[in-house]
Write a protein that binds this DNA or RNA. Structure first.
Lengths: 252, 252
DNA sequence: CGTAAACTTGACCCTTTTCAAAGCCCGTGG
DNA sequence: CCACGGGCTTTGAAAAGGGTCAAGTTTACG
């Protein structure tokens, strides 16, 4: 039971939402909260390893991840897979396909997850009822795109050690912002090396060797499903990871 | 003077906008048009090879590309560059940094371009005045993200020939939708091999050799700044390029 | 305690990169 | 009209980073 498990069950009312108490998110007005709650069709517990949204699936719903880890990815016909980004609490899933009839990517849960599920047409109503909420949705879309931008730079131009360093720093910082680090500074890290390989565009074997090399250099420690960053300076330098100012994120 | 040059100068009034006459875009109501026009601070001609938005630039404006080609990219400190996506008429630039104080990517013009420039705070006002326009902005953001998603799959998991085939098909189709193909089916193609290499995460040399091999197989022809797709079937199969339904795009 | 999944490691191979140089295209200026 | 020069393309050869194959080994867990 890690820090993320502190609030695993999505409460009935949004004002009781555990996530909203996190300092990582902006606060919504009571009226906005009410709108969100009304457009929400409920919450859904999804066990680890489930495909929540399938590639080419029509009419996928809109979700907010409340607790747990998930991945967004695309595949090629022979099974090659590219992870586009990892979803952490507060991230939305299914935004893209609100605008096209089929989903162009898939979403799988990595750990057991809780999602907030929205009604069909929730998105459009959100815009109509509160311009602010519409604006927030765009904010979320823009932030997700900037994540993918960074990942594209990583896959396209960084060397294997740079890629691995980038991924570790990126996830670590995101977890930090969400307040999910343990007191000893370690972070929950429920993904395996295959996930890392698929996220970085590397083979499993080479991911393993690179990970190992960085660990032997004393830069990080990955064990027991937890990540410890032992030398953030060097890792950040290798990756050219510069944290953008940790703005507060809106929450749907 | 190619097809894209048919409407190179952005007219004073949005209702006279040449782009809006293209069947590729949704039509906006008179009221929406009026709002857009009011929030527009003017148009701007930008010569080829100009950096419109710099990486880490604060307070970049919001633009709509009216005519010409541009690129959005990120770089590493030693000069390695990854092109995130190409901008064609109707695409917006600078959306992401409306939400953070600095731009995390750069935008360069490839050809001479005309942009529609929006006022500071235009975005927020758009949402307030017409929910529909806010929704459209999110649509544009989501579409751009899906482009980047595809490019990430390309850079992360496709082989060199697959990457090149993908890029050619993708751009060709986008140009087709915009009605920019010549009568003979050829498309304007003002980018050089360095652009292609930077977009695909390949070296210039290998890009050249791969391009050459595909051309020798009779799949395409790239000369005189124009692209001809000679064997769309095979190119699409190599790339696993499946056109998503060409939805009409909104236009800001 | 046994089995499957995940992690490691070594050896070999191949795609892609790097380095180097030549050729081509075209606009500019003599 | 032709020489010059710079950017872009093309090619060859060598090197290397990363992929593939094939076992092991450890860990998680029922």
């Amino acid at each position: 039971m890690n820090a993320a498990a502190a609030h695993t069950v999505c409460p009935r009312h949004c004002e009781d939402c555990g996530l909203r108490r996190s300092p990582a998110f902006t606060s919504a007005s009571p009226a906005e909260l009410q709108t969100i709650e009304r457009l929400r069709s409920g919450s859904q517990a999804v066990p680890a390893g489930t495909t929540l949204i399938r590639e080419r699936q029509p009419n996928a719903r809109l979700y907010t991840l409340y607790a747990g880890w998930a991945v967004r990815y695309k595949t090629l016909s022979d099974g090659r897979r590219q992870i586009l980004n990892f979803l952490l609490p507060g991230d939305v899933a299914g935004l893209q396909q609100q605008f096209g009839e089929v989903s162009l990517h898939a979403v799988d849960t990595i750990t057991d997850c809780h999602f907030c599920v929205f009604e069909d047409d929730a998105l459009w109503n959100l815009y109509r009822e509160h311009a602010r909420l519409g604006y927030d949705v765009t904010w979320l879309a823009a932030r997700e795109e900037s994540l993918v931008d960074e990942n594209l730079l990583t896959a396209g131009r960084r060397s294997a050690p740079e890629r691995v360093a980038m991924l570790l720093m990126q996830l670590y910082r995101r977890l930090d912002r969400l307040g999910l680090l343990a007191a000893d500074g370690s972070a929950p890290f429920p993904i395996n090396q295959q996930h890392i390989a698929d996220a970085l565009g590397l083979s499993l074997v080479h991911t393993n060797k690179t990970l190992r090399r960085l660990a032997q250099m004393g830069l990080h420690d990955l064990s027991g499903g937890r990540l410890r960053i032992l030398n953030p300076r060097v890792l950040a330098r290798i990756a050219e990871f510069y944290d953008s100012i940790p703005r507060l994120a809106p929450l749907l």
